[in-house]
Amino acid sequence: MGESLRSIHQFKAKLINGKDKKLSDYKGKVLLVVNIASACGFAPQLKELQELRDELKDEEFEVLGFPSNDFGGQEPLEGKAINEFCELNYGVKFPIFNKMMIRGEQANPIFKFLSTKELNGNIKSTPRWNFHKYLVNKDGEVVDYFFPFTKPSSTKLRKKIQRLL
């Protein structure tokens, strides 16, 4: 049976190591999908994202990081260098995908889906900067979003995640 067109599970993307990853592999998990950038002032949120993941890893929760150079050229790194930066500086172990465009005509289909209400059925929210966060329920439906200044440690974000777990 095919994936619902209202679910992020219909997509696949390349992990930073070059391997294809079906997002349907995350069925049954609550996801926090974040566009990340190593040279961004919000980069310390990578550590908080990892702490959030560590705290909830036994509760069917995952963070997915999508590097992008769309905002202020703040992702100058490529491939393994992005992964090494995230791991060495912030202890990141959550999945990081290949660098991609996340807004405009050239946007990756995953981000077109996340940001377009006509596609996801629930929200309209185009990232305006790095570390825009989308909250996805266990069925792969986009249920909420958070602006970059909302930290992963914020009570608002954590309560919404807990409700979905």
Rank of each mutant, 00 (worst) to 15 (best):
M1W: 08
S4H: 07
R6K: 13
R6A: 12
R6N: 12
R6M: 10
R6Y: 13
Q10N: 06
F11I: 06
K12I: 01
A13D: 13
K14F: 14
K14L: 15
K14G: 10
K19C: 07
K19E: 15
D20K: 09
D20C: 03
K22R: 10
L23D: 01
D25E: 15
D25R: 08
Y26K: 00
K27H: 14
K27P: 00
K27N: 13
G28H: 10
K29H: 14
K29P: 03
L31C: 01
L31Q: 02
V33Y: 01
V34A: 00
V34F: 00
N35Q: 02
N35E: 00
I36P: 00
I36A: 06
A37D: 06
S38N: 02
A39F: 05
A39G: 03
C40D: 12
C40Q: 02
C40K: 00
G41I: 06
Q45H: 14
L46H: 03
K47W: 00
K47D: 03
K47L: 11
L49K: 06
L49P: 00
L49D: 11
Q50G: 11
Q50E: 15
E51R: 10
L52Q: 09
L56F: 14
K57C: 13
K57P: 01
D58T: 14
E59Y: 13
E59A: 12
F61I: 07
L64R: 04
L64M: 09
G65M: 02
F66L: 06
F66T: 02
P67G: 09
P67K: 06
S68V: 05
N69L: 08
N69A: 08
F71M: 02
F71N: 10
G73T: 01
E75F: 11
E75M: 03
E78C: 11
A81W: 11
I82A: 13
I82L: 13
E84C: 04
C86K: 07
C86Y: 10
E87F: 05
L88F: 12
L88N: 12
N89E: 14
Y90C: 09
G91Y: 07
V92S: 06
I96K: 05
M100T: 15
M101N: 12
R103H: 02
G104Y: 04
G104R: 09
E105S: 13
A107Q: 04
A107Y: 02
N108Q: 03
P109M: 02
F113R: 07
L114K: 10
T116Y: 00
L119D: 05
L119T: 07
N120T: 12
N122P: 01
N122R: 14
N122I: 02
K124P: 02
S125N: 15
P127G: 12
R128N: 09
W129M: 08
N130Y: 07
H132L: 11
N137K: 07
N137G: 10
K138M: 04
G140Y: 11
V142R: 03
D144T: 06
D144L: 03
F146K: 01
F146H: 08
F147E: 15
P148V: 03
T150H: 05
K151F: 01
K151T: 14
P152C: 11
S153L: 00
S154G: 05
T155G: 01
K156Y: 05
K156S: 08
K156M: 09
I161T: 03
Q162D: 14
R163F: 10
L164E: 11
L164V: 09
L165Q: 14
